[in-house]
Computed example of a mutant assay.
Amino acid sequence: MRIKEVLRHKGSDVVTIRPDATVGELVRLLAQHRIGAVVVLGEASAPAGIVSERDIVRHLHDAGADYLSSPVSGIMTAEVYTCDPEDEIESVAESLTEQRIRHLPVVVDGALVGIVSIGDVVKQRMDELRVERDHLTNYLQS
Rank of each mutant, 00 (worst) to 15 (best):
L60V: 01
T77W: 01
L104S: 10
E53K: 06
E132G: 03
L104C: 09
A21C: 14
R18H: 12
V72W: 01
K10N: 04
E90T: 09
V15C: 04
S73D: 04
D55F: 05
V106S: 13
R58T: 08
I17M: 04
I101P: 06
T22N: 03
M76P: 14
L112P: 09
V113I: 15
D87C: 09
A63M: 06
L26G: 11
V107I: 03
L112T: 05
D109V: 02
I115Y: 06
A111N: 09
A111V: 13
L41S: 06
G64D: 01
E90R: 13
E132P: 03
R34A: 10
D120N: 11
H9R: 15
A65H: 05
V92C: 04
Q124L: 11
L140N: 11
I89S: 04
K4E: 15
R130W: 01
D13C: 02
V40H: 04
Y139N: 06
Q124S: 14
D109P: 03
H61R: 13
G114N: 13
V39S: 06
I17Q: 03
S91Y: 05
D120A: 12
L29T: 06
L26C: 10
R8N: 14
H33Y: 13
I3K: 04
P105F: 00
V14T: 08
P19W: 07
A21Q: 13
H61M: 07
A21E: 14
S70A: 15
G119F: 06
L104N: 08
Q141E: 12
R125T: 15
V121F: 12
L136K: 07
G11Y: 02
E94D: 14
A44E: 15
